[in-house]
């Protein structure tokens, strides 16, 4: 390859580097700006959940996300619970039947029954996506996945 060719390619590489740096930077900023939950370090209500969210008492932790099991089916499809690493993930599984709810990875299992929801308060010291399953559904050969706990690095 000629000398000019080489310099041209290096120049092209430099141009790409500059363009991407300029383009990607604001996105990084807006990423955080659009999504206050990322900084809050708290759980956010799952999609499709239309409970009123805490507004006035912002000092208090927001109410836990509710996951409702109706006849073994999770209402509104597989739920998503978000938390930052090093915070606390709070959620409640309300079931109309006896069930064992298992959070993988953290390996926490709690019983739920009619009128006795399973309340979880998990210190999020592990990062990743963790499946939350109903053991009753699993034993019956149904889809056991009811929600995912998404713990992002803080």
């Amino acid at each position: 390859m000629s000398r000019q060719g080489r310099i041209g390619l290096l120049g092209l590489a430099a141009v790409i580097a500059v363009v991407v740096f300029v383009l990607a930077r604001p996105e990084e900023g807006s990423d955080k700006a659009d999504d206050p939950s990322r900084n809050a370090g708290q759980t956010t209500p799952a999609a499709g959940d239309d409970r009123p969210t805490a507004t006035a008492e912002s000092a208090l932790p927001p109410p836990p996300t509710e996951i409702r099991l109706d006849g073994g089916e999770v209402q509104g499809g597989v739920q998503r619970i978000e938390a930052k690493a090093g915070s606390t993930a709070r959620f409640v599984v309300i079931s109309d039947a006896s069930d064992d709810i298992h959070v993988h990875g953290y390996d926490i299992e709690k019983e739920a029954a009619l009128g006795k929801p399973a309340r979880f308060e998990i210190k999020t010291d592990l990062e990743g996506v963790f499946e939350i399953e109903s053991h009753v559904a699993e034993d019956a050969g149904r889809e056991p996945l009811i929600a995912r706990l998404v713990v992002e690095p803080s």
Binding site: H104, G105, L126, G128, V129, F130, E131, E133, E138, P144, L145
Partner: peptide, 9 residues
């Protein structure tokens, strides 16, 4: 079952 894979992704 989901079993294998540990449930973490």
């Amino acid at each position: 079952a989901h079993g294998f894979g540990g449930g973490r992704t």
